[in-house]
Amino acid sequence: MTTPLAPHAGAAPAWQRFVAQTGFEARAILRNGEQLMVTIIVPVLVLVGLTQVDVLDIDTDGLSPIDFFTPGVLALAVMTSSFTSQAIASAFDRRNGVLRLLSTTPLGRGGLLAGKVAGVVVVGAVQVLVIGLTAIALGWRPDALGVLLAVVAMLLGTAAFTSLALLVAGTLRAEAVLAVANIALLLLALGGGVIVPADRLPGPMEHLALLLPSGALGEAMRQAFQHGTLPAWSIVVLVGWTAALGWGAARLFRWH
């Protein structure tokens, strides 16, 4: 004889699962020393280094160093959280079966993905706050329109780089992702039109950088803060990369 089966616990409402997963993802990154290093400490050090240490002799278009470099450092920060950090975290979660286990709970694959993206946005908000306040302390004075346009640019950049992160994390071995995500960040940061504006890059790299999501994001951030506009070309490039990378990730992502 079996006693009547207790009713199953039922799924929590979708918004509650989404909020739980978002917090879970954001905490996982903000509590992890290495992730904190790459997402917060590195961009802050880059900002302080470029503006306070007088080693580089760069023509800043008549802007103060803090006004010249802060938009690019914020673009770099978006890349660290939505690409490097997310790719590495997802790759190891995938290897350890975390993605599979959570996808069997009521959260499902869709909820897991939504929580990951929202978690990146939360981490991005923390980054902007820390980097922005540091820059303000160093004399940066952004105007409201610039901030508004920059938020749009950062969201577009987050979409493109999170898609790239998931494509890499879902197709390569975790150790390979670790290497690729760090090296790609370094290369794009130096030669991808992020911190150093694309028009300062040598020869054809200028045009190449503007076609990359890194250059498009860097350019959009500088235009937003320095001229109060969003370049249409940057938006087209970022949306295009998001569509292509998102399509690739959806098709090629392997859960095992």
Binding site: A28, R31, N32, F92, D93, N96, G97, V98, R100, L101, L102, T104, T105
Partner: peptide, 11 residues
Amino acid sequence: VMLQDGGLPTG
């Protein structure tokens, strides 16, 4: 579901 490799986040 209990997976063979656990599926637990390690951090």
